[in-house]
Nucleic acid binder design. Structure first.
Lengths: 193, 193
DNA sequence: TATAAAAATTGACCTATGGTAAGTAATGAA
DNA sequence: TTCATTACTTACCATAGGTCAATTTTTATA
């Protein structure tokens, strides 16, 4: 059993247990790619052609708002990554994606994904589980924005990703939290005291 | 072809075209239920057992924050409805659901849904499409919260649901927008001028 | 239909966060 | 290693939105 298979199994194990052959079917379609630090992977107003899984490193999903980028997701090891909206609709979106560090990702192309969904016994199920887990993640982000203060959201992010400060620029953490980097700076100052 | 089949087909047509038998397979499992105005459908810290589709009426998904309810979704005709997080995980969540009006819904039970997913050729695909559309919706809510002011979010909501004011209490619209009802009141006053 | 309860509005004041501008620190390219 | 660029911080003031309390309007129910 190769590394990819083990990893894919582990990622999905949280949601769905299946025979090892299922994960092999998925893993054997995955290719590997490495991106440089700060490399842009998908550009705004283009169509996403791949679904990624981060093996090592980190990356973000962004959109441009007036004169500054807004980060809508911070992704790390074992996270799904990419402009999922564009992937599903196969239409261009304003979203773009960037690596924060030198990052190794696995990916499956859209055409392979469709083939998997249509022709593998478990393919559609894997696709469903993936979409469901992405929904759950998005809903928790929405609930945080609706119910927590910026300081609470920052503290929670730190608790989930203690090393995020060393890995992701603060300006992107700030926009992800829905605040300016000046405000994040004030919050950090207050917390240190 | 019965009304439910037609309706289900129309809901999914946006995302996925399939032979009519597929929709019949789904529709024949749907039951119909009517709720009274302000009736609570799912209570906090319980497990969701059904996935609903609203046929006529409106309803909201809530969570309790300190001393007031926060609305995380407003649902109308042809929307999926229910505590989808709890449905997927089959675990209790703090989310609860309430009708705003007398509302007729179709529903499929969790066990029927699993059976559909596992044993119908198109079942898993329908489940995937449903989860994907819910993800897209949640992501757009997150982006609105991160990039728009409360006034912009209110105007956008009105443009999408012009009759929402007559159908949903303003206090729930306010919490959905992430503001207090006092703030919504001031925004409305300003707009009328 | 009368009455009580709930929802919505308003005003006064407050707080978290934004905007601007300047300074400092870190990073990356030559 | 130097220099230019970018990231981060700080300070000051502005503002969107929050809090509390009072009032008006709407809704539900006896």
């Amino acid at each position: 059993m190769n590394k990819k298979t083990i990893q894919i199994k582990e990622i999905f194990d949280l949601y769905y247990s299946a025979p090892i052959e299922v994960w092999d079917t998925f893993a054997e379609r995955l290719k590997t790619v490495t991106f440089n630090k700060n490399e842009e992977i998908k550009f705004p107003n283009t169509t996403e052609k791949k679904l990624y899984i981060i093996n090592k490193g980190s990356a973000g999903i962004f959109l441009w708002k007036e004169n500054h980028p807004v980060c809508i997701d911070l992704c790390f090891e074992n996270d799904f990554f990419g402009d999922y909206l564009s992937l599903l609709t196969q239409k261009p979106t304003p979203l773009y994606t960037v690596c924060f560090e030198e990052t190794e990702m696995f990916y499956i192309t859209f055409s392979d994904l469709i083939d998997l969904y249509e022709n593998s016994k478990f393919g559609a199920k894997i696709g469903r589980i993936a979409a469901e887990s992405l929904f759950i993640h998005k809903q928790s982000q929405q609930i945080e924005l609706l119910t927590q203060t910026a300081e609470q959201r920052y503290r929670y992010l730190l608790s989930k990703q203690p090393h995020i400060i060393q890995r992701v620029p603060l300006k992107h953490i700030a926009s992800y939290l829905g605040i300016t980097s000046e405000s994040l700076s004030r919050i950090r100052k207050k917390i240190v005291k």
